[in-house]
Design a protein around this nucleic acid. Sequence first.
RNA 1: GGUCCCGUAGCUCAGCUGGAUAGAGCAACAGCCUUCUAAGCUGUGGGUCGCGCGUUCGAAUCGCGCCGGGAUCACCA
Length: 595
Amino acid sequence: MIAQQLVKIVGEGVKHLYGQEPGTGLPGLEKTKKEIPGDFTIVVFPLVRFSRKSPETTAREIGEYLLETVPEIASFNVIKGFLNLVLKDDFWLEFLNQARRQKKFGCLKPRHEDPIIVEYSSPNTNKPLHLGHIRNNLLGHSLSEILKANGHRVIRVNLVNDRGIHICKSMLAYMKWGNGETPLSAGMKGDHLIGKYYVLFNQYFKTEVHDLMEKGLTEEEAEKQAPLIREAREILRKWEAKDPETRDLWKKMNDWVYEGFNETYRNLGITFDKTYYESNTYLLGKELVQKGLDAEILKEKEDGSVWADLREEGLDEKLLLRSDGTSVYMTQDLGTAQSRYETFHPSSMIYVVGNEQNYHFDVLRLILKKLGKSYADHVFHCSYGMVELPEGKMKSREGTVVDADALMEEMYATAETTTRELGKADEMEPSEARELFHAIGMGALKYFILKVDPKKNMLFDPRESIDFNGNTGPFIQYTHARIHSLLRRAALTGLDLSSNVNSSLTLLPLEKEILKKLYLFPEAVQQAGDELSPAIIANYVYDLAKGFNQFYQEIPVLKEEDPEKLLLRLALTQLTGLAIRQAMVLLGIQVPTRM
RNA sequence: GGUCCCGUAGCUCAGCUGGAUAGAGCAACAGCCUUCUAAGCUGUGGGUCGCGCGUUCGAAUCGCGCCGGGAUCACCA
């Protein structure tokens, strides 16, 4: 690309003019600021120490050198230490022609190499998904798409947490108060039904704890001795002993939950290549720990528990096997990492997990390293922030969660109302209209979440509905629909869009603006991949759509009488449409062709 | 208490690998539909970039110290 070439040539220029190699790190090419004439800018301050001249003189000299050397450069200007370069219009027009020939503009071709494993979602099967899970799922899905666009092979995996004491709590509550209720008889999605019993358990449990504390127990003692928790623990014991009755109920209830989850996933547009279940993987890792013990990397304490000592690394000791020989969460994660490494030989493993588990993943990586695993350095925790409500953090037990299904329904309803008010659904088939409402509702939700830097906490106010105007998903979708409307009209006139644009045309400022933005799309895709950040794509595509709307509003396209200019504008329109669609695919958002 | 993350306009967020006058959207106000979709476009107002010190020709951006918010440090997952 021209950017890298220019940087290189600047280096050569410095050597030619001042006899010194600037070496690494010096030159930096940036976009020229809006109000200043120019396309790219070189900040020459760092080069002054080679030239031993004023910034202005240095900039002028390098400018002259570039003007002579680089045929694409039309002119330059110098403001203080800033060297602003103007490229010839035919450079931009050539770019337009070349970009239009690409199959998938902005994306790299798939390379044949080891895959990247992206783990996300990882739900518990004792309650329905909420807004936090939505952020996780959207991030995981989008990251997978972004990595693919960067030429990687991606394996998307889901590790379902289908066993453990929390599941037993729902089971116990169901046994006690369920009366044989089923999703069908209750008219509820399976995950919501199970969630109901989880809440029920916690209500009764809370009362028990309260009563015990009245009798003088501390909270901690009460929580351990409450009859309900003892019963739940007994169910867990039976489950681990493979008691048939317990296992049957467990399976039945989990299947209900999966049916519910699948519906939620379908609405979200999320899929996986492989699903793991903890009930199958929770014993993994013991072998690994044993080997570490044999090699004296790990140590056993007197009571038989096994630990990794991370104090030299600035962390604490970490338990890997309890004194009774059973394993913990960390043990399992060590085991699944090893198992995935053996099956897929991934180039890296990315875990999309909330930032509350930052410590866990630091420890995981350290232990893998201690155990001498070469892949330890290729384990990445894609850590994202909490979704907060105006009152603070969402808490399942206190019922202050925003339910995923309810939220999606609401988004759909808002999309329908808004669209109908605008009269845009009037001439649509009911099925087309339904698809549109879904696309817009989900587009608004997804964009709202993905435009925020993943690592930051974000705020969601349920009282204010998610916007459809301004920097939003529907805004971008609308721009796309508008583009298609233009292209449809153009098609009616029988124009052939496939031929190349004449590269000796002169560009209007707004036309060039869009070309400059389009030029940045491949970079945005790459940066999003490097930083594991869909937000970069979201902000990019908003900027592009905004730019197109300005162009659209100011410059008539179809009224243009000069056929070459008409072709240019339509080509511009078409490529923008492609870039928007491509970017939105990376975000997992559908783009309607009319709305 | 230790470690990590965050603090930018009334609100939600960009910008953070140091660069020119700190940007959007929402909300408020004022314009633009007999002309390609007004879910749009244009304009006005709104800022000690938490505070202080340092590094630098140059700091929202880097370093240190405070202040404020969050997460985490289980024989839970």
